[in-house]
Every structure is written in C-alpha cells, then in structure tokens.
Nucleic acid binder design. Structure first.
Lengths: 184, 184
DNA sequence: ATGATAAAATAGCATTCGTTATATAACATA
DNA sequence: TATGTTATATAACGAATGCTATTTTATCAT
C-alpha cells in the first residue's frame, strides 16, 4: 500500500538535537534542519504538527542527557562534590543545553532542582550521613552548596571563565569544606 | 532653512532602553520602537545607520545603569556584602539587563567583573582591611564570594527563585561569614 | 510670501521564517 | 501489471523583520 517512511520521528529529533547542541535553540529552524537531513521541509511537518511540537521532543531529549549526567550513586562518599562536578561538567560539555534548562526565564522548570526534584530528599539524607546535621541544617547547607555550584556552572556555560576540571574540583572542594567548617 | 529635528538620538535610545528593560533585547525592533515613539521608522534610520548601531548605544546606557547601581563607598564596612547586595538587587530590578550583561556568551564582557575591572584591586584591598589576609588569600576569598553572589543573581534574574531583600541579605551574610571562618 | 533644505511619513523591497497546497514518486496489494 | 495510498519534493503564501526610495511636510533665510 503506502510508501515506506524514509524519515522517522526519531532521526528528525536527533538532527534537531544536534543543531541545538552546536548552535543553540534559536539557530534551529525548519529549513536548516531539512538541510541537515538532506530533505525538504515536508518530512518535518509530516512528522510534527508544528516546529513547537518538535522542539518539545528535543527538550525531552536534552533533559534526558542532563539526567544521565546526574545519575550518581548517593551512597558514595563526597556526594555533594560529585553532584556538583557533574552539574558543572554538564554546563561545560553542553553549554547550550545548560542555558536552555537552567538559564532561561522559569516557568515549569524549577522542578529540575528544587524541592519537587525526586532526588532532593535523597541528597539531603545522603549528606546527613556525613555531616550529622539535622535535616533542616542540612537543607540550608545544601542550598548554599547548590547556589555556589550553579554560579560556577553559569560562568562556565557562558564561557565567562575557563576552568579546568582540576581547578573546578579544587574550587568546589575547598569552598564546600569551608562552608561546612565555618558554620557558627 | 531645514526642518527642525523632532526626534533626537537620545530619546530614541531612551525608548529602546525601555523596551529592552521591559521585554528583553529580542523584543526590540524598528517598528515596535517607532510605535513607542509615535513616529514612523524613518527617524530611527535617519539617526542610526543600522539597528545594530542603535543597540550598541542601548548597551552603553544599560552598562551605565549597572555602574550606578554598583557605585559603593569602599571605605564602608561590610564592603563585600554591600557590593553583593547591589549586584543581586540589579539582577532583581533589571533582569533583562542582567541577562544581557552577565548571562550571555562572553566576548569582551569579562572585563565587567574580572581582573581587568578598575574596581577589582580596590575591592581586594578594602577587604584586606577587615580580614587581614594576604593579597593572594583575599583574592581567593573574593572570587568565592563573587561566584556565590553571581549564583544568586542568576537565579533571581531568571526568576528561578523568589527571595526578599531580607532573605538575600541573610543568605549572603551567613555564607560569606562561613566562608571566612571556615578557611583552613 | 516663497523657495531651499532637511526631517518625517508612506509605501515598498528583500530576506527569513513557519507552514501548506499541489504535484510527483515509491511501494504494498490486488 | 494496475491501483490506491502516502511519503517526499517543489513551490509558494503570509507574516515579520531590517532597511530604503520616494513623497510629503515643516522650517527658516531671503
């Protein structure tokens, strides 16, 4: 009966993902994507109602990339440092993705790293094992560490500072230590 | 002889500045600006060769706004806290400006707050008066405080977190204190 | 008043974008 | 092989953008 599909949804999303990764979201458009796929714009609009719909699926793939970077064994020691390093490494390896996920006007994205995060509670509890603080104290500590980490990640993603992995590890390590030791 | 000029460069830049302040840089275009000025697009292109030229002048005005926010008496006590609070307050009051100045891909903008900053040395020295650290130690401390401050400012500018002035002051105050006390 | 001159209005061009109407081509089934 | 179905190509529409050619209008020295 029908002609076999040449362009599947997945490969279109993959190509769009690559464009966004290399050149940012505002460089993604139907013609550019078609060119990358060596086709006309038809397969795109045949598979997706609108560009917006396609971008939604790209978002999902971007978020999956982030999640895979952040999958860390919470039983490990130095949880905070490892989580922080992963977060910053993500910002370094995928600056465009980081900007999309964490440096844009917020609507529903807060959930990614705030209280609603599924990992939030686990992180606090993992931290408690090492610091022996109360849940509330640990929570305050966690927020401060996270803000500092986020600060570095933003600077890295925008290329405002260029830091090696070792420099980042030192900076994060000593600061987290000082934040802990300096508590009243 | 000639007709008197009705639209001066300054008022055009002012109107553009307002649009950027309220709606961001990518909402600025010739027709929208003309509408705000109650004129056609002609006065704009008569006064500026291109939109890019106009935007350059808007950038200058934005940077001036930032500088006026950051003009702080360095002889004051709690310099760090005051500078940090000003930086964050700027991000809160002018999120679009903050994003333009400090949350975009960097080219020449590093100068705003890095070593090349004219205030950089004065800030370090002012800090030394209170901490009695060596210049190098004070420098390290300064960078950490700045990263933390920048982290909060980014979160505020993107509306990822909503913090009152008091909450910001507490967060910044206690963290800077802990960073100082926790040093090896 | 009038004419020279420059500012501003009008209307349009060229480009880029999302999207779609139409035509063509490929493929499974009869 | 013929037919129906559908994926893809071609080409174009309509809106938004930067910018400009042309016309209109206001000012001021004469």
């Amino acid at each position: 009966m029908p002609k076999k599909k040449k362009f599947q949804k997945e490969e279109i999303v993959d190509a769009a993902y690559e464009i966004v990764k290399m050149h940012g979201l505002n460089q993604l458009n139907a013609r550019r994507l078609a060119k990358k796929l060596n086709c006309s714009v038809q397969p795109i609009f045949h598979n997706f109602k609108t560009m917006e719909d396609l971008i939604k699926e790209v978002h999902v793939k971007i978020y999956q990339t982030y999640v895979s970077y952040m999958s860390i064994n919470l039983d490990d020691e130095k949880v905070y440092k490892k989580i922080g390093m992963s977060y910053i490494q993500f910002a370094k390896d995928f600056p465009e993705f980081f900007k999309i996920l964490f440096m844009q006007q917020t609507n529903q994205k807060v959930e990614y790293f705030m209280r609603t995060d599924t990992m939030y509670d686990q992180i606090i509890q993992a931290g408690q094992k090492m610091t022996h603080l109360s849940y509330e104290e640990q929570e305050k500590f966690h927020i401060k560490v996270w803000i500092f980490t986020h600060g570095i990640a933003c600077l890295v993603a925008t290329n405002t500072v260029q830091l090696s992995e070792q420099e980042i590890a030192d900076l994060l390590g000593t600061t987290v230590m000082e934040m802990m030791l300096g508590r009243k």
